[in-house]
Design a protein around this nucleic acid. Structure first.
Lengths: 125, 125
DNA sequence: CGGAATCCCGAGGGATACTG
DNA sequence: CAGTATCCCTCGGGATTCCG
């Protein structure tokens, strides 16, 4: 019964923690902040295809989980900056590795997909 | 304009590759296969809370992407085994690190959530 | 045992409009 | 600029049933 610490177990908090990472945009935001502080609009530009709704929501989630720090400057027009917390930077190391893996192995994945789809599974017109 | 290789760019294949990792169950399946070969039912048991539909679908996706190998023994009752391919094992290293991060830092995340929710955001009845 | 097929609901998430 | 609020629709994914 000593299976407490296990990401595969729903009863283990690490499982829900892992879910937060698995979100579609979470990793990309952490990845985008790898070089330092960015403003909201800069994040919006850096992460292609993200809507403001999702960007805001993702940032709130990451802030809530202690991974991202938000600093608001009370000026007009508004100025808001985001950066990783120490906890966020510890995760960032793994996220960057994940990004590197994706960049390094994307061609293998693509060719695997091509093979798989070419084995008689394509839909002829 | 030399920003080709970038997981943040939708036009870069690595971006879609990263998406496949971000799926809710993909990482857990790769993680579950870290120790070697498992049968369908063993995976179903190991990964708490996954439905057979999602397990099958996730395995198909990972097989299609060249991360998981499927071996079917033509016996009755059926016997099917799954294991990581070399490509899958290269990803597995990063996934295991992600799992370790989740296990090591889950308490920090939990306490951050408690702090955030305690700052006047809870909904009193 | 290892799936495939079907049904169906709720959340995820985009588009748009508005605001301090 | 940095959000919030609302609408609305897709599809992720659970439950169930059937099959070789």
């Amino acid at each position: 019964m000593t299976m407490a610490l296990n990401v595969l177990s729903r009863s283990c908090p690490s499982n829900s923690v892992l879910e937060l990472i698995a979100g579609k945009w979470n990793m990309l935001v952490v990845y985008a902040l790898r070089d330092g502080t960015l403003r909201y609009s800069q994040l919006h530009t850096a992460i292609e295809g993200i809507s403001q709704k999702m960007l805001t929501q993702t940032l709130r989630d990451l802030e809530r989980d202690g991974l991202v720090a938000r600093r608001v400057y009370p000026v007009v027009p508004p100025h808001t900056e985001y950066c990783l917390t120490p906890l966020g930077r510890s995760l960032q190391e793994v996220v960057v590795q994940m990004g590197c893996w994706a960049e390094q192995h994307m061609m293998e994945v693509l060719s695997a997909r091509a093979d798989y789809d070419g084995q008689g599974r394509t839909m002829p017109g």
